[in-house]
Amino acid sequence: MARLSESIPRAISAVDRQVVRFSQLLLAMMVVVTFLSVVGRTFFSQAVPDDLLISEMLMVAVVFLPMGYLQSLGGHLEVTVITDHLPEKVQSALVTVGLVLGVVFFGLMTWLSARMAWESWEFGVIAYASALDLPEWPAKALIPLGLAWWCVRMLVQLVFPSSRPGHTSEFDQALDETNGY
């Protein structure tokens, strides 16, 4: 068990690095598409066809792919104003509750959005007003992938509490604050 609690999170992090690298590439593409389109229409009378659509689809990827990585950093938004004053044990229990709820609801969202992506593929849905007849399913398929990967990370944190990111306590923060003086 002790070995698993280290090797499993480590394996997941290795995959995460590749997911993040891919997301970085897509984010950079988002910039490039708009830039080329503006330069193209201004100087060469030719914009990138479906530029807005491509950006929208990349947006979907940029939002959903990094969610699991964010979870590993403890990066999702939470309000700790009150819970910081509670004992360590209670805080840890609340984090567990949050993970359970997260797995339940985002697990459900994973399944339902996968169904939507499948439907989109089956119907051969073309993105609205696409000049290049871009299919919608690839962008839609990234959603359940990103969400599922997030759920896997939450499950691992649920099963192996040692893999949860450390929450900086008030005490640590107080220590940090005195560093400057």
């Binding site: 389109s37 229409r41 009378s45 030719q46 914009a47 066809p49 479906d50 530029d51 807005l52 659509l53 000049a131």
Partner: peptide, 11 residues
């Protein structure tokens, strides 16, 4: 029809 224009997508 080779219309002489630049097709621009804006919201």
């Amino acid at each position: 029809n080779d219309w002489d224009l630049t097709s621009v997508n804006i919201t």
